[in-house]
Design a protein around this nucleic acid. Structure first.
Lengths: 339, 339
DNA sequence: CTGTTAGCGCATTCAT
DNA sequence: ATGAATGCGCTAACAG
């Protein structure tokens, strides 16, 4: 029948069936210590006959660790977060660690609940993409005080948690180099379409844009989604824009932007050049393909794995902050650098 | 410091600090039974002072339930699965249940591992989007034999697990009605761009297409991703297609298809009409917006919630199979029905 | 209303 | 190499 009760078969049952002690069953199944081959096979067949499956809750309570790593994402809908989740899953599969993912649903309250849940379930480490640059501090600090905690992609300053992410300002520098090598910025209008600086990534990308492009360019801020990109396009068109170079804070924003611009009859890159950020898979199937600043997801997940395997402790006891350099990926949505 | 050891504060510590028994601490914190207000406040301040946080592993071991529901997705990159995960997260937040998500990474082996992990951790229920229509049977059966198990979106025949999904054949019927009301099918070439029938959804959508459109239309089968859509477009163009009505098995396929067709200079819907399936958010920001068969995600997650809350048992003990009718959402990628 | 006690399932001592 | 005994942290019986 569907949904039978939890497996009632316990180690004691297997031990009885095999005529050995529970200790021998435990040692046989975990293979952590040598066991007489004869008893070993008796235990294995007994376990098989009874359909025994280890109760991981009992094991976790006893060992104090769960062979589990938690990941808290703000939201499943953002494809960049999904990509990180997928890569992390793979990274931890090899060492025999299960990655469990929890969505904060863009809410501080839910984020805190996720921390409580994972900490209370004795995860070996906790990876968090914080919802808010400032207000996630409570969640992050709580997490960091009880378990190896790594902030991913975004960070909350002043917490004791590790951090892995890209250098967003450097990413904007790459964009500036690319754009300025092909466009006369003095003649060509440009604008930044970003997100409200409530997350460190949004904040740093905005800062980076200002630093490299100067303070005179128009700036439109919304949220990290395609709908905002569409709205921004509508606004630009209403303001009389008919051409320009649009630097965005995320691929999803760029996608919405391009879609609306094209629907209004403009050409990309003919009228507008558009540049994204993140490097999600979608950039290759936009038309035109999107020029973007790619976050090296493999290097990021690798860094996290190493941090977790070292027990989350740096040599000097200080939290590690690993910033990886992103790379420009040329698409057809912006002019190639003229040689 | 980053990654301090697990919180060593236990109920016994709080009880000692407050001068009460652990039972009183438990009762106060869980609020399950009345406690003298005086003791109650002493317990609460003691817990606060010591920074006590309940160990959910101990609670789970004791109670046999974890207030947790597991979700196993084949993969995080498919936006429809992400959407389901997000909606399920919300659906279970209210009843105080944490949804934990595990990616099978499109592998049967990993899928089975996910089942073992969740079952071993005493989830109250397990929701699975099976990787394979046939070969996931081992995972699903194992799950169903130990915990309330619900197959979502796809199903493995012959298992004892519940199932929630849409009627895919009916979806294809809606597509046929829409297309035939506006296009003379006898004159207008049509084709199906689907996925290899290794999942029930791919299978049923293919069957549905054949049933309603007949067996004479060309059929191209690949996988549920945009890259396949692009490749299919390339193939159609190479075969000399210059116009037609293209019915797909998924929005992501349709997106890749449109992108490549447009890049090759064709017009949608001028030359090609394209129709998707699933109803992910992206359909609204494609240009043109995509006509699609929308899966009513809210109704699906609601059905799951009800199933879980009823303890995963149907009235008659038989597994429940809930098929929900999808709905056609008109976009600009296909002709509107002529009145 | 509160305290004492027991035991969930397991891995690990400590003895043999 | 094996078995007996212990206790991880918690809640539910039971007694008071």
């Amino acid at each position: 029948m569907a949904g039978a009760g939890p497996n009632p078969v316990t180690m004691a049952d297997v031990a009885r069936q095999a005529g050995v002690s529970t200790a021998t069953v435990s040692r046989t199944l975990s293979g952590i210590r040598a066991v007489d081959p004869d008893l070993q096979s008796r235990v294995l067949t007994a376990a098989d006959v009874l359909g025994y499956r280890v109760n991981l809750v009992g094991r976790t309570l006893r060992q104090g660790r769960s062979s589990t790593v938690g990941l808290i994402v703000p939201d499943f809908e953002n494809p960049f977060f999904s990509s990180l989740a997928q890569h992390l899953t793979k990274a931890f599969a090899a060492p025999g660690i299960d990655l469990l993912v929890f969505s904060a649903d863009s809410s501080l309250e839910r984020e805190l609940r996720g921390v409580h849940s994972f900490v209370g379930r004795q995860v070996d480490a906790l990876v968090v993409i914080p919802v808010h640059e400032v207000e996630s501090a409570a969640s992050i600090s709580l997490a960091a005080s009880s378990v190896a905690t790594i902030q991913l992609d975004r960070q909350v300053p002043g917490t004791e948690a590790h951090s892995v992410g890209v250098s967003n300002r450097h990413g904007m520098r790459l964009v500036h180099e690319h754009v300025s090598s092909a466009v006369d910025l003095a003649r060509q209008p440009g604008a930044f379409v970003g997100a409200m600086p409530t997350s460190s990534s949004a904040h740093e990308r905005l800062d980076g844009f200002r630093k490299w492009f100067g303070d005179d360019e128009p700036i439109l801020l919304g949220s990290f989604d395609a709908t905002w990109g569409q709205e921004a396009a509508t606004r630009l068109i209403a303001d009389g824009w008919t051409s320009g170079t649009l630097v965005t804070a995320a691929d999803v924003i760029a996608t919405g932007l391009m879609s609306r611009l094209q629907a209004a009859g403009f050409r990309v890159p003919g009228d507008f050049r558009v540049i994204g950020f993140d490097g999600i898979g979608m950039v290759r199937l936009a038309s035109p393909t999107l020029t973007t600043v790619r976050q090296p997801v493999e290097a990021m997940t690798q860094a996290i794995r190493e941090l977790v395997e070292s027990g989350g402790r740096a040599a000097n006891g200080e939290p590690v902050s690993k910033r990886i350099k992103p790379e420009l990926v040329l698409g057809a949505s912006s002019p190639a650098a003229t040689v």
